[in-house]
Amino acid sequence: MAIGSGLGAQLGIAAESSYGTFVAPSKFIEFTKESLQLKKTTAQSAGIAAGRLLPLSSRRVLTRKEAQGSFDIEVTNKSMGLLLQALMGTSVTPVQQGASAAYLQTHTLASVAGKSLTIQKGVPLTTGTVTDKTFVGCKIISAEFSCEVGGMLMATFEIDGKDCDETQTLAVATYAPMSPFHFGQMAVKAGAFGTETALDGIRKMSVKIERPQDVERFYAGQAGLKKEPIENDQVKITGSIETDYVATTLDDLHTSDAATSLVWEFIGPNIALTHDEAFRVVLPAIKLDEGPPTVDGFGVVKPTFNFVGLYDGTNQPKIEYMSTDTAL
């Protein structure tokens, strides 16, 4: 029997072999907040019947169902692969580094067609009984990563789902020992692709990756459920860099509107040999939209530079993840 509060909740995920087909969760996420829920559309008859003062309950119909929501997590040194694959699109197999226990996942930007998840959450009643809510056909619509002084690397994943199934058996959650990436491990680099150098004065960083999709594919003959969303716009990558004004590097890039490669990385403890735990976002071309420094008082000048990620014509954005995970 679980604790009858959020202390007894759980969130498990699995990659689906086909959109909307349940797969029992294989990974369990330590989350901080979630809002996944069934969304339903109903229609109520407005037919006139002599003497009837209220709409008739039997003439209300459920015309379509879907699922929506988000969840917040701390980005950890294990068990992130399935989420990163569903976000970025590339089918990834971790690559062992030499004969060590370190495995590198390289999630390069690609189409997300066919990349869907089953997400199962357990919600405790006050009695301690945990109720099952299983969301199938879950597509990641966006993910935002952020870290600030003194904080952990956090991520928010926005989800669109096909349906909520409450008839599945709630999986027994198991958790591998994990630790979060944090500000003390963070570096931000800029420069020519492949030779980026560290920037000084960075206090906070965020990157948002949006995967626009047509989530309104409701057709006749589908029992009120949608077909797999299809990408219907270019990927949008945006972010911000909050700094102390210790150098003009970013300011000059804003002025010239020149492109630079941006690397945002977190380097954790050593796994083996020269291979450390790592989480790295590589954006081969960004341009700064706004954020030139202004003085608004006696304190240190603290510009925040907003940027957009673009294609450099050769290299795709990617997320590199080094861990001991031998599989996603």
Rank of each mutant, 00 (worst) to 15 (best):
L56M: 13
S91Y: 08
L54P: 07
V61R: 14
V95Y: 04
R60Y: 08
S58E: 15
P55S: 10
I73W: 02
T76N: 13
P55V: 07
T90N: 01
N77H: 09
V61N: 11
A99M: 10
F71H: 02
F71Q: 05
Q85V: 05
K65A: 14
N77Y: 02
A101G: 06
L56D: 15
Q68H: 09
L54H: 13
L82H: 08
L87W: 01
L54K: 14
E66D: 11
V95K: 08
L84R: 00
Q85N: 06
V61K: 15
V61T: 15
I73L: 11
R64V: 08
L83G: 01
L87P: 03
A67W: 01
V75M: 04
L87T: 05
V75F: 01
S100Y: 00
A86K: 03
Q96G: 07
P94G: 00
D72W: 05
A101K: 08
A99H: 09
L87S: 04
P94I: 00
I73T: 07
T90H: 02
R59G: 14
F71E: 08
L83C: 02
R52N: 13
T90Q: 08
G89D: 00
D72H: 06
S91A: 11
L53D: 14
G51F: 09
L87D: 03
S57M: 12
V92K: 03
I73F: 02
V92D: 03
L83W: 05
S79R: 11
F71Y: 12
L82P: 04
Q97C: 06
G51E: 13
L84T: 04
V61D: 13
A86W: 03
R59Y: 15
S79D: 15
K78P: 03
G69Y: 09
T90F: 02
S100V: 02
M80H: 05
L54T: 13
A101I: 01
L54C: 10
S57R: 12
M88T: 05
S57H: 12
Q97V: 09
T63E: 07
R60G: 13
P55C: 08
S58T: 13
V61Y: 15
G98A: 00
E66V: 09
L54Q: 15
V95P: 01
V75R: 00
Q68I: 12
L56G: 08
N77I: 03
A67I: 05
D72R: 05
P94T: 00
I73R: 04
L53H: 10
G98L: 01
L56C: 12
S79Q: 14
T63P: 06
L56R: 15
E66G: 13
Q85T: 11
S100L: 01
E74L: 10
R59Q: 15
I73G: 06
R59W: 12
V92S: 02
L82S: 12
A67H: 09
L62K: 09
K78S: 10
V95W: 01
G69Q: 09
I73Q: 00
P94M: 00
L87G: 00
L87E: 06
G89M: 03
Q85I: 05
R59T: 14
R60N: 13
E66R: 14
M88R: 00
G81I: 07
S91W: 03
